[in-house]
Design a protein around this nucleic acid. Structure first.
Lengths: 248, 248
DNA sequence: CGCGCAGTTGACGTGCTTCAACCGCCGTGG
DNA sequence: CCACGGCGGTTGAAGCACGTCAACTGCGCG
């Protein structure tokens, strides 16, 4: 049983929980809010929205009305090139917010698609903004999360300076760290994205990703079986990643 | 006389102007605020801080107390690799905010250094946060700016998928668009950063940057004389950039 | 005037891409 | 139940874009 699947199971069985009972509480928007404030936030959140595998959360060009908190599952964000190929800009795991890039224009500039059966909390942005000015803690947390996103994206910019091995190591490190923060094993990882999607995100050819995975396995750094990864030598992954992993 | 130098001249002579009289008003934080609110913002901003060429605005690891609005000049943000080389994550032009990535941790994760004689407005973050909860328009604008930064960083992530020509074209397009938004020529650009810095930002070797510039000139797309660029065929630059430029 | 650094240009090596074939898992239908 | 097709993934061979090394230029500054 892999990390992400576990997350799914827990969340599917707890769809009705309020923020205060959510196991993602300390990663998500409501962090730091007290009872009353939390209930007010609760009241504007539309919970329990399931998103089927391969279903869109929103598409590039859509008007931005809400942002979304991933409750279970995982998503990819991407734009399309002129010739119609996906350019993946990021992956979202439980506890993370999706759609923050659309606030400035009011329109989504990327498309978000579920990699597996997922659930999100939908947060109407207008109401969130109103509430933020009333609840200082909420405002702070929202700014924190956006700042984290900026920091994460900037560390992703550094990818373009790295070799294929370093890129893949960074990617695995980032996932490991994020899983760990969610209380799951950082050693055993189940990838919910395909090699093509990883390659697109890292700016590499699929074949290169495949080859580097094979090399990692040969060198005893990790065992790789299709989408099941087991990290054997975390230190080495850390080193390869340039000792500057992004933990979001 | 180039774009950036012009900005300098204007701003150096208008250091005492309040936000409402600042020529960067419509790009910067105070956008959309009314008289009273604007004055309150004015009251917390520490203006007139000059930053000499090559001086640090802050360094990685410093505690984050303020964010900074570029008033004139330009800055580079970077981290250092293990072997001490700069990894440039971005450049900041007048009207842009620096230091937003530090909000989540309270510590700057990158270093910011002036590329030329520059001026910034220092905005104490704690006071800004307080004020934001009182002034809804300020909160909105802060969120907008951070969202814009996220969108820009994500478009920079796409660089890693592009060829050297595409990367440089994207870079030039981004600068051109940003200059245009500031009321300067988008055709004639004076680069305040070195080839080494451009190369670092784009994830290329200096020699490659130099060669691609030469090729652009040969092909009549732009004239290049050291740091003076004149775009001859804007459409072609646009095309090369993948018709998906980042205007921040 | 001359040193030094920024930038350019050339020759060569290589890491990644591209093209192509192949493998193995999984779902479907006979 | 097995045969078959298709997709995701792996592996090999060859080409090329970019990096590296090195030499050279020219502008700026003391």
């Amino acid at each position: 049983m892999s990390g992400l699947e576990s997350v799914n199971q827990i969340d599917i069985s707890s769809l009705k929980v309020a923020c205060k009972d959510c196991n993602l509480y300390q990663l998500c928007l409501p962090l730091g809010l007290e009872n009353d404030d939390l209930e007010r936030l609760d009241s504007i959140i539309k919970r329990r929205r399931p998103v089927k595998r391969h279903a869109y959360l929103y598409q590039a060009g859509d008007a931005m009305r809400s942002i979304y908190a991933v409750r279970s599952g995982s998503f990819k964000s991407f734009t399309l090139t002129d010739d119609g190929t996906e350019q993946i800009t990021g992956f979202s795991l439980p506890g993370e917010l999706i759609g923050l890039d659309a606030i400035s224009t009011g329109q989504h500039i990327s498309t978000s698609k579920a990699l597996e059966m997922s659930h999100v909390c939908e947060i109407p942005f207008e109401k969130l903004e109103e509430l933020s000015s009333v609840i200082p803690g909420l405002q702070r947390q929202l700014l924190r999360i956006m700042s984290k996103e900026i920091a994460h994206d900037q560390s992703a910019i550094l990818l373009s300076k790295k070799s294929a091995e370093e890129r893949l190591a960074c990617f695995i490190m980032s996932l490991a760290n994020r899983f760990e923060a969610r209380g799951f094993s950082s050693r055993e990882i189940h990838l919910t994205m395909s090699r093509v999607e990883i390659a697109s995100y890292l700016g590499l050819a699929v074949e290169t990703v495949s080859r580097v995975f094979s090399r990692f396995q040969q060198d005893g750094i990790m065992s790789v079986n299709r989408r099941a990864i087991e990290i054997k030598d975390m230190d080495e992954v850390h080193n390869l990643a340039g000792a500057k992993p992004s933990s979001r």
